[in-house]
Design a protein around this nucleic acid. Structure first.
Length: 810
RNA sequence: GCUCGUGUGGCGGAAUCGGCAGACGCAGCGGACUUAAAAUCCGCGGGAUCACCAUCCUUGCCGGUUCGAGUCCGGCCACGAGCACCA
């Protein structure tokens, strides 16, 4: 018998799979729907970076490859596609540095990635490959943008945005992590720029509600819920001595009697108005504070534990609507312009931040909720507090007081119920070259005009320099020929938008394109979308929970509302994998020098071993450190699988002493693949092969089942053995093994006998032996009897097939 | 600070419903084979006391419920992730 030559075997089968198209999904066509039920599994398509694949990528791809391969054997028409999320900064930066066109860099990176992925033997349907930088693809990304625009959900707005001075680009809130650029770590600053925005806040409630109907792991749901950040409360109308109404948002209207002052954000429009009108007596101080706030980066402004600062607006006061008290108004940067009304009522007795501010400015603090000691700290407990010093609310519990006060405000026209979300609109423009051009034209007479749909795609023009500019202008802005165009409405001179879309655009709908990637008339045909959507199972990284996952749900919900996509929610089930860490337990990165290249592993051990190890490495949902010596265990296992051919004997049914284990293994492996527990599935297969070796042989029926169960993990070696042993056809043509629940149970089982919870004996019994017989055996057991002698038996418990516990008293 | 998650041998981890803790693998030790080594095969393998039999301890810590707790409840501690002046 040959040795296990994985390189030859893997190359051979990869070529055959490619030539036969065995993993191509069957497409519904002209009203004919495939007979097999569909199953759509999806992994997050990669960004084809210059570094190539690292061993973290295949963890997710392998896990769903197991599902895809198993589902095919179970008779499903499986869609398991792959593509490229190829617009983006690293490619553009590399292109600038090496003076190569980003399209060329992208093409090279993709072919590198594609070769690497193919060498792992994934059962992707390569005929459906999509590429977000392909004009035939981004044409529809632009088309979707136009639908947003037409629906009033895309708008251009002058606003303060996050700016990365190193990448020279605007960032979305989701791309700023702890005040720094998610990509390069540089501290971000604020810039006022005119930006295209997508009104994702209009979908805040739908995005929240949709979570109830989908099967996402709970940490994903919680994280999205937190990010959306729904809160309920009231908007309260305060009057001012200047005559203007000053509305505030609060979640604690019950504490209105404790409002001792008001705070507005430094950018609040009324401040400008009052300054202009000259009502504010300390205008210079106010202006100075505004300037200071403007200069601060977002990070500095939101840094916690810093001392509260602010300036009182002298000359204007607020009037508390519940008791007509005249209270001072401050500006302070602890109140955010972009949340609520940009103004608050401050209740220092019952809010930590207001308390701190009141201490700094030596303002009076009134207790309106009994239960704490406000000389020490703000009392914020809403479960135990009882109202006091609050007129008609006195004696009520906080929760009842909130309702009563809100009703009162509405009855007296002094406020109304309000829901607020932490989620902000999505900043959708980037001042860079390598992205989808935004298909909008600005005309002096007609304003912003959408490009007619028949003019899509709006191609990225050739440009000499991709260098971003410090002024925050896109490199496209210097292309006067491209920029100058005619207005689609009046035909007069007009200018194109020169910003491009963010990287998250293309990935927001790629799962739709996969259903019909060549469609030229629409994002996909109705027929294809109706057959394939929603995605049955989507696996990806936790880092995309508040970015890609939320954005793509938003796009899908919008397209559903427009009647374009047939499903409300795009993903039925979402799971998430843990990161693969370097051998030292740290995150894999070039700078740490702990990156493992899959090419090297494949060269040394083969793709099947790599796949197996990726699944065996540990709990799929948790991070796991790479361990080079552990791979040997997986490679040794496959060698044993291969060598089992030498121990093959005839037999078309499982031998009786192996039958139970065979059925147990089928059950366990089937369950484990569906629950992302590859590690225990492999452990079970190892247990089984150890039994074959103990028996000194394996028969054909047993070997066939074993190979089918192993096939999703190690597809090349199993096909090869199947062919060599002439088991008939290909593994890919077979059916997934079935088990008989009755046969998974041993006839004879070992049970333990405990006395007062301590194990005193182990005995073999027949599985269905009646309880009284088992207890009799237990009491008479030579190790148990002495423990019972002379003691009073209080209770005897028998857990069928597991244990007996006899409780005695001395 | 808030939200979520996780703590089990030297290591990765298993225990799916409250019922034998440590499956499977790695590393290690002993043996076989070999001139030798590698590879392979067989055996051992949480800790303590112990010649052996055996006994006791053990799932981050403290307590509780239960005949029985890694698993359930309460309170701590540690680590990780996300959010972070969102009123």
């Amino acid at each position: 018998m040959d040795q296990y030559r994985f390189s030859e075997i893997e190359k051979k089968w990869q070529e055959r799979w490619e030539a036969s198209g065995v993993f191509h999904a069957e497409q519904p066509c002209d009203g004919k729907v495939p007979e097999k039920p569909k199953f759509y599994c999806l992994i997050e398509f990669p960004y084809p970076s210059g570094q190539g694949l690292h061993v973290g990528h295949p963890r997710s791809y392998t896990a769903l490859d197991l599902v895809a391969r198993k589902k095919r054997l179970e008779g499903y028409n499986v869609l398991y596609p792959m593509g490229w999320d190829a617009f983006g900064l690293p490619t553009e930066n590399y292109a600038i540095q090496h003076r190569i066109h980003p399209a060329t860099v992208t093409r090279e990176n993709i072919s590198h990635f594609r070769r690497q992925l193919k060498s792992l033997g994934f059962s992707f349907d390569w005929s459906r490959e999509v590429n977000t930088t392909d004009p035939n693809y981004y044409r529809f990304t632009q088309w979707i943008f136009l639908q947003f625009y037409k629906a009033g959900l895309a708008y251009k707005k002058e606003m303060s945005v996050n700016w990365c001075p190193s990448c020279k680009v605007v960032l979305a809130n989701e791309e700023v992590v702890e005040g720094c650029c998610e990509r390069c770590g540089t501290e971000t600053t604020q810039r006022v720029k005119s930006q295209w925005m997508l009104r994702i806040t209009d979908y805040a409630q739908k995005l929240l509600d949709g979570l109830d109907d989908v099967d996402f792991i709970s940490r994903v749901k919680t994280q999205q819920r937190n990010w959306i950040g729904r809160s309920t409360g009231a908007e309260v109308y305060f009057a001012t001595t200047a005559g203007d109404a000053l509305n505030v948002y609060t979640t604690r209207p019950d504490t209105l009697f404790g409002a001792m002052y008001m705070v507005v954000s430094p950018e609040h429009e009324l401040v400008e108005k009052w300054l202009d009108e000259g009502i504010i007596q300390n205008a210079a101080d106010v202006r100075a504070y505004q300037d200071e706030a403007k200069r601060k980066s977002d990070f500095e402004r939101t840094e916690i534990n810093k001392d509260k600062t602010g300036v009182r607006l002298e000359g204007v006061d607020g009037i508390n609507p519940v008791n007509d008290e005249v209270i001072p108004i401050f500006i302070s940067d602890y109140v955010l312009t972009s949340y609520g009304t940009g103004a608050i009522m401050a209740v220092p007795g019952h809010d930590d931040r207001d308390y701190e501010f009141a201490k700094v400015f030596d303002l009076p603090i009134r207790c309106v909720v009994e239960g704490g000691d406000i000389t020490e700290f703000a009392f914020i407990d809403i479960d135990t507090g009882i109202m006091m010093n609050s007129g008609f609310l006195n004696g009520l519990h906080v929760k009842d007081a909130i309702v009563k006060m809100t009703d009162w405000l509405e009855e007296n026209n002094l406020g109304h119920r309000r829901v607020n979300y932490r989620l902000r609109d999505w900043v959708f423009s980037r001042q860079r070259y390598w992205g989808e051009p935004i298909p909008m034209v600005y005309c002096e007479t007609c304003g912003w005009q959408p490009l007619p749909e028949d003019q899509l795609p709006l191609l990225l023009p050739e440009v000499k320099s991709y260098e971003p500019t410090d002024t925050g202008e896109s490199p496209l802005a210097s292309l006067t020929e491209w920029v100058n165009t005619t207005c689609p409405r009046c035909g007069g001179p007009a200018k194109r938008e020169t910003d491009t879309m963010p990287q998250w655009a293309g990935s927001s709908w790629y799962f739709i394109r996969y259903t019909d990637p060549q469609c030229e008339t629409a994002i996909a045909s109705r027929e294809a979308m109706e057959y394939w959507l929603p995605v049955d199972w989507y696996n990806g990284g936790m880092e995309h929970t508040t970015l890609h996952l939320l954005y793509s749900r938003f796009w899908n919900q919008f397209l559903y509302d427009q009647g374009i996509v047939p499903v409300k929610e795009p993903y039925k089930r979402r799971t998430s994998h843990g990161m693969i860490l370097g051998e030292n337990g740290e995150k894999m990165s070039k700078s740490r020098g702990n990156v493992v290249n899959p090419d090297d592993v494949i060269h040394e051990y083969g793709a099947d071993t790599l796949r197996l190890y990726e699944m065996f490495i540990g709990d799929f949902e948790k991070p796991a450190p790479w361990n080079t010596s552990s791979i040997r265990g997986c490679s040794r296992f496959l060698e044993r699988v291969f060598d089992l051919q030498n121990k093959l004997i005839d037999g078309d049914s499982y031998r009786s002493d192996l039958e139970t284990l065979m059925h147990q293994t089928i059950k366990k492996v089937s369950y484990d693949i569906d629950h992302l527990k590859g590690n225990t599935a492999i452990a079970q297969l190892m247990t089984l092969i150890n039994r074959f070796y103990d028996a000194g042989s394996v028969n054909q029926a047993e070997y066939k089942t074993f190979l089918l169960l192993l096939n999703p993990f190690a597809p090349h070696i199993t096909e090869e053995i199947w062919e060599r042993q002439a088991f008939g056809g290909r593994v890919t043509d077979q059916s997934w093994p079935v088990y008989d629940e009755e046969k998974t149970k041993e006839d004879e089982v070992e049970i333990v006998i405990q006395v007062n919870g301590r194990i005193r004996a182990r005995v073999m019994i027949l599985r269905d032996m009646p309880e009284e017989d088992v207890l009799k055996i237990a009491r008479e057991n030579e190790n148990v009897a002495p423990q019972l002698a002379g003691k009073q038996e209080l209770k005897a418990i028998y857990v069928p097939g597991r244990l007996v516990n006899i409780v005695v008293k001395a």
